[in-house]
Design a protein around this nucleic acid. Structure first.
Length: 300
DNA sequence: AACACGTGGGC
DNA sequence: TGCCCAAGTGT
């Protein structure tokens, strides 16, 4: 009898301990899975769940979302953060309709070409929606693999090709088992092998973990520069968009001016929102969420 | 490669 | 309070 493999142990643990997240239920569409992956980018599960349910309730298919304005998508996005994702997700729906007849593609290359879909999301959809054998490497997986295999305390700042290779080597040969293992490793990183305080006593691979064996050496230096928020353009963008989001139709610049005192920074933030397709100018002194109403009259 | 890009909850 | 984070992507 062989000893259980890394993937085998984690998969068995997952089958018994996985959280009951709605996008993991049977018969969830590839589109619904794609939507969940985009919403989960840099955003905690607890905040995604209700928005995901409302979103799919309103727009069950790419075709349904593709017909909507960016403004509707931005509003439905609520306060998940990084609202460019809402605009890109709608663009993604348009692309799926135009390029693939409304069906989410199953090839990595085609997924990668969709707006808002990068290395992680493309692989996640291919594996979780279509059962293909691809390493799915997010920050959780990187951390788990670095710890368990290399004995290092964390995965470093960015996903490297080596991370994909190291993860791929852990996956079982059979595609659906590999997809399950990928979900399991990710879940382990999210729930047990966390960045701050790992619960090694509850970990299914504690006895074969290189990091545990090494005495859990601490991280070397500061992992990354702290991301500040107060006073940044991001905060100003958030304030401006907040006002536009809760207002139906155009808002006079005068009202936007009250959101932030610094004229230069406020103008820069607003221009950025326009560039990113979140906001559109109406004439010289009015602004609205992109597509929030009939097309703007052409300047004569 | 380094940065920009939101938000709200935990400590 | 203020810092850190949480299933990345695009430039």
């Amino acid at each position: 009898m062989n000893e259980p493999t890394f993937a085998g142990r984690v998969s068995r643990w997952y089958e018994q301990n996985a959280r009951d997240l709605p996008w993991r239920r049977p018969d969830v569409s590839a589109w619904a899975i794609l939507v969940s992956e985009v919403m989960l980018q840099q955003t905690p599960v607890a905040r995604v769940v209700p928005v995901w349910q409302a979103w799919l309730g309103r727009w069950p298919t790419p075709a349904a979302l593709a017909e909507e304005s960016p403004a509707e998508a931005i509003r439905m996005w609520g306060r998940l953060g990084y609202p460019r994702r809402a605009v890109r997700l709608r663009e993604c729906a348009v692309a799926v309709v135009q390029r693939h007849g409304g069906t989410v593609p199953d090839r990595l290359e085609q997924l990668l070409a969709l707006p808002g879909v990068g290395t992680y999301t493309a692989r996640a959809v291919a594996a979780f929606a279509y059962g293909q054998r691809h390493p799915v490497v997010d920050t959780n997986v990187r951390r788990v693999v670095c710890r368990a295999v290399a004995g290092e305390p964390d995965g470093g700042p960015a996903t490297r090709p080596a991370d994909l290779v190291a993860t791929e080597e852990l996956l079982p040969a059979e595609p659906s088992a590999a997809a399950l293992a990928s979900a399991a490793i990710m879940e382990l990183g999210a729930v047990i092998c966390t960045a701050r305080s790992p619960r090694c006593d509850a970990c299914p691979v504690e006895t074969i973990c290189a990091w545990r064996a090494s005495g859990q050496v601490a991280p070397v230096g500061p992992t990354r520069r702290p991301q500040r928020y107060a006073g940044t353009d991001r905060q100003v963008r958030g304030l401006l968009l907040g006002l536009l989001r809760e207002t139906s139709g155009p808002v006079p610049q005068q009202r936007l001016d009250q959101v932030w005192a610094d004229d230069v920074q406020r103008a820069r933030a607003l221009a950025g929102l326009v560039t990113d397709g979140l906001v559109e100018p109406i004439g010289e002194t009015w602004f609205r969420l992109a597509g929030d109403g009939p097309p703007a009259p052409l300047a004569s």
